[in-house]
Amino acid sequence: MDIKAGGPSSDKGQWRRLWYTDRCMLWFCIMGAAIVGITVLALANIALTELADPVHLLEIAASSEVIGSILLTFGAGANAVLILVLFGTPLAYVLARSRPSRLKGLVESIVDVPLILPHTVAGLLVYLLFMRRGWLGAPLSEIGLAFEDAYPGTVVAMLFVASPFFINTMREGFEKVPIHLENVARTLGAGTFTTFRTVTLPLSLRHMFNGAIFAWGRAIGEFAAVIMIAYYPFIISTLIYYSFATEGIRTSRSIAFVVIVVSLGVFYILRRLTRYLGRYDDRA
């Protein structure tokens, strides 16, 4: 039998060796399984309940209200991520390449502010800034861009809470690109932006993608910050809460299950599409 390295047979041998020789790893796996187990149990619980009543589930999944809300949520999340990619990428590069200083430390702390705030506080900050009488909301509403109970409000709330996920991941990606590569590109005649565009950015694409996924996931999952400024139109979290409050557990659970399935599907497709991103080995 042809046994290839890394194939099923060697995997089996590896597990056998682990079982007999590395008890430490075994305990670590058991403890880790407790965490994974909670997620698996929660998913199994809702899946078994919902699949027991497929007619109701399909009725909910096909309702225009749910579909519209999912599209709105995913769209607003994507919009927020797009803005983050455009504006967060340069900031992440500056943070990655600048020398340690008080100013850099201050900017890094400011970037992390949305991480440490309760989501309602984050929402309140966004509301105060973008409400019709807010510092930014007032001048923008004069040119027709309203944020309260409007799509831009949803986007800006999502942008605010998701920004550290994208910027920090992107910064790590830039930091992993050896400065020597940029140096060589410069001596070959490339200016700073050309070097960034042709060397640094392509080598950071995997981090850009991961950062965008994290940020998008965070954005579409936001509830508290969004309802502070834009209760309407209903994003999916708001719709689930509204259904829970007005129609009870059954409808809200079905909507939640639909969201889980769609989200997992979208994430899986995105991962598959970008699995070779950042791999540069032509032997594979």
Binding site: P178, N183, V184, A185, R186, T187, L188, G189, T192
Partner: peptide, 17 residues
């Protein structure tokens, strides 16, 4: 800036893209 100096540079780790 480096791009205007007309010098070649080769590092120990070769720094190929």
């Amino acid at each position: 800036p480096p791009e205007k100096r007309g010098v070649g540079l080769v590092y120990q780790d070769f720094s190929l893209f």
